[in-house]
Design a protein around this nucleic acid. Sequence first.
DNA 1: GCCGTTTTCGGCCCGACTGTTTTCAGTCG
Length: 624
Amino acid sequence: MSNAEIATMLRRIAFLIELDSENSEAENTRLNFKSRAYIKASDQIQNLPINIKQLYEEKGIDGLLQIPSIGKAIATKISEFLNTGTVDYYEKLKLRYPIQIDDFLDLEGIGPKTLRRIFSKINIKTLDELEELARNRELRILPGFSANKETDILKKIEMHRIGKKRFLLGDIYPLALKIEEFLVNNEEVSKAAAVGSFRRMKETVGDLDFVVVSNDPKKVIEKFVTMPNVKEILSKGVTKAFVKLNNNMDADLLVVPSESFGTALLYFTGSKRHGIHLRKLAQVKGYRLNEWGLYENNTDQKIAGESESDVYDLLGLEWIPPEMREDNGEIELAKKGSNSWQHKMALLVDYNDVRGDLQVHSNYTDGKLSIEDMAYYARMLFDLDYIAITDHTQSLKIAGGLDEKEILDQQIKIHEINDRIKSSQFFEDMDTSVVKNQFYHYGNNYRSRKKDDKKTDKKFRILSGAEVNILKDGTLDISNNVLDKLDLVGAAIHSNFSLPEEIQTERLIKVAQNPSVDILFHPTGRIINKREGYQINISKVLSACLDTKTVIEIDAHYNRLDIRDELIRTSINNGVNLVIDSDAHHPMHYAFLNLGISQARRGWANKKDILNTQPIPELLSSLK
DNA sequence: GCCGTTTTCGGCCCGACTGTTTTCAGTCG
């Protein structure tokens, strides 16, 4: 039973409670708050970095009660759900409203109040039936309804059917920057920022949010809603506008005066739960916090608003990096004077900390370019100090994996190139015109790393390595005496994804125990929105990694981002070391390193937890 | 139903936009 399933159950209960509130006003209010309590608990569980089922098995109801927003009543229901697969209270509510709940649960724009009005007059059970009512013009006669509202409902149902999938951060990153740039370049705009889950660098993004500073909101909003990639205007007011883009993604804009920029950033960056927590903190301190500013409650005097850090400061907090704003304990950690903040979060890994990339492919296998080219761009455009060439090995036929002789030949080639880098004008002599052209079409749309001019290009080094294929029984397809000649070895699963959990776990533990394996590449094997990771008992694998000094990779390719943020937190808490790699098959993929660093920051990783923030000698001595 | 630096009752984040109203309820971010 996953956290998501439990969260969904609580949300269904909340929904039915709201439908049920049809009594006296006082009773309505009570049920309303009751429903919100279930929604809060559901949100909390959805975002919880630990597995509820495991927590319950280890600590029982007391474990559940330690989770914020979960009290005795909800804890009991979760326990019942875990034990029996159902909740009696929910089943009873369902008898009162025998509808297809999941049809209506995530129906955007049509909430429980509207549905209650319909259900109380007309007996329908499914979304199809609701659609039919609207088509037959049978809704407009209900109180509070109209022909317009009928049309609106049909449109909302249609949008719901299209489905609102979340976009991969890496896919929409260039678009977000493009719109941000469009806004910045407007003469009425003095500041603009892409915010929302994009700024928090979540691995998937539901919509794009922008905050701009302008003295002429009307004009800015008009330009925003008439951008070429806007398909439809959803709503447009004096300070806010919502549109649908051509790719069916929603984009939201908020226009504020300069003195509100900080609070607007806070509000629109979210997360929602982080914002709510901050507003509650403000309330306790006698303030009121909204997107326009932080105010004294008594005098209505504005005491902050222009900068985020002023607001955090007045709330008694350190400034919290956007990647951490999930209300998963960061606010408690950020209390002024907190030791743990000084020791932990002040040392959060930063975007310029990563010095090298330890998973890079070349045209020896399925990479697009030569080792020389991969080295050149790593140095010249991404300011890296080293890369490891880790091509696939022989049993991965589809990628043209290397056999033992080819691996050793490649290593000789790498030594040759390293010698040339050390002794000659290697970087000046490269002919790069062709690749550069390809590169700027794509890679330049990512924010790139800052070039450190003090470094000399002759310091750059290529490490020899391999992405060794893990066979079904946990052995490797290359012998240890060959692997031991390489600078580093990553091992990865590319087949037999669906072995039973116990066997898959044993398979990975065997790999960790292999003395030649330094790193587990993309350890859980997930592809976001496409493939769940393989079934493994992660705590057993982590413990094997700790015992054997095996390093866990954060694969920064945006469709993997493997391991995910909560697992990063778990790994670090267990003392396991990490590296961040781009899995580059083309130089433009080095840009993904930043996404991996974001992932690490969302997993609260310090610089010291990430081994490839170190220079080569220290890195190599940290490996097996 | 949850929660507590006004702690076991009485609160519960805050404001914008829309549509159906004519002062507000519903929904969203």
